[in-house]
Nucleic acid binder design. Structure first.
Length: 608
RNA sequence: CGGGGCGUGGCGCAGCUUGGUAGCGCGGGUGCUUUGGGAGCACUAGGUCGCAGGUUCGAAUCCUGUCGCCCCGACCA
């Protein structure tokens, strides 16, 4: 390809719409253009990058025996209703674009394809003899993100590779999951990305085990907590850790564990309370009053007890509430704090906000119009383990000191609800501390189990001749996000430094002065011989000044530059490597033998 | 949705406080000179200042509404 024919439009200034380096560079270098919020056009250079990434993905997926397919993006609501996800994905903060067709039938634009693929599996998979199978596709996904961001990082339309596997038993699922894990590591390495695998929450997709692949980068949206040797790494929403040991409350339980009231006028926060009375936050139990809203329009008040120095992990809480209530009430749509206004509009007497204790009585809910009349009571284990503590007295301007579970009130169900923090001791090795780093999630693999196959009645006949639900896994890679993540990891002050394996072109031949016949004809000759050698080569045949061409070549990030300049008369050219800036002069006749071996190695990406 | 910010030639911005009919840099076109790190000079085209109302003799500027975009939180490949 010739640069003069490439519709290359580069920008000198950073675009105002972008903040992070990769987003700025992709726009400046003429790779993408925004069409609407979170919706981008992939210009010819970008499309070549995406095709190269896709090729790596295909090769590795095909290598595991997976089958490429293409599923509809327009999907009937019915399938989503059967899996129980329609309401969660369309109501409230749901992310599915949805519409009605001319007959009034509801449809959704696919944000993911578990429903469709399971529907097909139900139709096609009948016997254990057909299993396991793993189907994948590379196509655009649609998600009405609450906040699109950072160009291709979080778009509302983006390219994803999604795969779904079906198995006769859990062991087979684990094997495919493991082979996807290693395929993913090869894919990211081949694309030149430094990526790490971290434990993850399964989120709305559901299922049991799940692992995310993170490209480490400052601009990453996710917080990773990892031990210093990286033997443990997890997304913060999933991470577990050991909380600091509590300091025992002097005096232990008082008033037979009921706690002694003391006046705490206006001290409605942990900080105020502790500062006013010489108490440590870890000696207190704070009680969060929340409301969970469900698909069936029911609402469940929650009373969550946490040790005062700990923070709630909302993902863990959401999972806990879902596990306890979704069977009866459908999808959990939202959890939010209950405030004064909500209490009043529900026709209830005021709650003692700021002075709430875990013994708050269900009687407060008796007059409720819509809410469940009993609190769902949960406690983080750090709170449950306190032998005596300070907590709200459930009346204004008063707390209790020396309260104990059992005497004050029964200890609520105890589970892990706290957010792990950087600096916490690791569970697997208390001598190590968790450290924070940021990451861009480029892949996610799940063991789904039988959630979808049961909902959509995807069954097969096993060896014993009886029917059972298929075991499923699903495996995603954000292809367009991966491409931008590569820029985030590979750029410098002059522009992008693409890894050879996913660069739109591998080599650019730059004639310093196209008007000089010696330079232009030697350039043409090298261009042809590189093409014949199977190299993806770009020829800058523009009659721009050399400086402009060098700047553009650096900006768009072609890994190798061959400069045909003053030495052309003597048959000499200059070979420049973009990433290292290393330069060497050599006879044009030796270019191929100098370049091809390096290219052959670089095309394979990082060594795994 | 809550909080913050921004919409002015293709791109990046100034002008707005204190209303008087739009300017700078880059980019585009033509010509001459230049030619290895975003050239110089000259000429030139291109904007009803997001949109709709209102105030005013007069609005890019003041007021109201509305739309769009970006940033911080929940969502996720």
């Amino acid at each position: 390809m010739r640069v003069s024919r490439l519709m290359l439009v580069t920008l000198r200034d950073d675009p105002s719409e972008a903040d992070i380096p990769s987003h700025k560079l992709l726009i400046r270098a003429g790779y993408i253009r925004r069409v609407a919020s979170g919706i981008y056009a992939y210009l010819p250079l970008m499309w070549r990058v995406l095709q190269k990434v896709s090729r790596v993905v295909r090769e590795e997926m095909d290598g595991t025996g997976a089958l490429e397919t293409l599923l509809p993006q327009l999907q009937p609501a019915e399938l989503w209703q059967r899996s129980g996800r329609w309401a969660g994905y369309t109501a409230g903060e749901g992310i599915m674009f949805h519409l009605e067709d001319r007959q009034g039938r509801e449809m959704g634009l696919g944000p993911t394809h578990e429903e469709v693929i399971t529907y097909l599996a139900a139709d096609l998979l009948r016997s254990y003899r057909q299993l396991p199978v793993n189907l994948y596709q590379i196509q655009s996904k649609f998600r009405d993100e609450i906040r699109p961001r950072f160009g291709l990082m979080r778009g509302r339309e983006f390219i994803m590779k999604d795969a779904y596997s079906f198995h006769a038993n859990e062991e087979s699922l684990r094997q495919t999951y493991a082979s996807m894990d290693s395929a993913y590591r090869r894919i990211f390495a081949r694309c030149g990305l430094r990526a790490v695998a971290v434990e993850a929450d399964s989120g709305a997709i559901g299922g049991s085990a799940s692992q995310e692949f993170m490209v480490t980068a400052e601009a990453g949206e996710d917080l990773i907590l990892a031990s210093s040797d990286w033997s443990y790494a997890a997304n913060q929403e999933r991470a577990v850790s050991l909380a600091a040991e509590p300091i025992a409350l002097p005096g232990g339980p008082r008033a037979r564990g009921q706690g002694e009231p003391f006046a705490t006028p206006g001290q409605s926060t942990i900080d105020d309370l502790c500062a006013g009375h010489g108490i440590e936050p870890c000696q207190t139990v704070k009680v969060l009053v929340l409301l969970a809203c469900f698909e069936d329009e029911s609402a469940q008040p929650l009373l969550v007890s946490l040790r005062g120095d700990q923070q709630l992990n909302e993902v863990k809480l959401t999972n806990a509430v879902t596990a306890r209530c979704s069977e009866e009430h459908g999808a959990l749509l939202d959890i939010s704090p209950i405030d004064k206004e909500a209490v009043a509009s529900e026709g209830l007497l005021p709650f003692p906000f700021g002075f709430t204790g875990p013994h708050l009585d269900d009687g407060l809910l008796a007059g409720s119009d819509h809410w469940n009349k009993r609190f769902l009571r949960l406690a983080d284990s750090t709170a449950a383990e306190l032998s005596s503590f300070v907590c709200g007295a459930n009346s204004l301007d008063s707390h209790l000191i020396g309260a104990a579970w059992g005497s004050l009130c029964p200890c609520p169900e105890s589970l892990d609800l706290r957010a792990a923090q950087p600096g916490d001791r690791c569970q697997h090795d208390p001598s190590q501390q968790l450290q924070a780093s940021r990451g861009i999630e480029v892949g996610h693999i799940f063991q789904l189990g039988r959630k979808y196959s049961e909902a959509l009645e995807a069954r097969f006949t096993n060896e014993a001749g009886t029917e059972e639900a298929l075991w499923m896994g699903c495996y995603g890679i954000g292809v367009s996000r991966l491409a931008q993540a590569a820029v985030e990891q590979h750029h410098d002050g002059n522009g992008i430094c693409w890894p050879v394996s996913i660069a739109p072109f591998e080599v650019i031949v730059v004639a310093a002065n196209w008007a000089e016949t010696e330079q232009s004809s030697l350039s043409e000759q090298l261009y042809r011989s590189l093409q014949e050698a199977g190299v993806d080569v770009l020829l800058d045949d523009r009659s721009e000044r050399a400086g402009v061409k060098f700047k553009d070549a650096d900006l768009i990030g072609i890994p190798w530059r061959v400069v045909v300049g003053r030495g052309a008369a003597d048959g000499m050219v200059e070979l420049v490597e973009r990433s290292s800036c290393s330069k060497r002069d050599l006879p044009a006749t030796e270019l191929l033998e100098a370049l091809l071996p390096s290219l052959a190695i670089q095309r394979m990406g990082l060594s795994v």
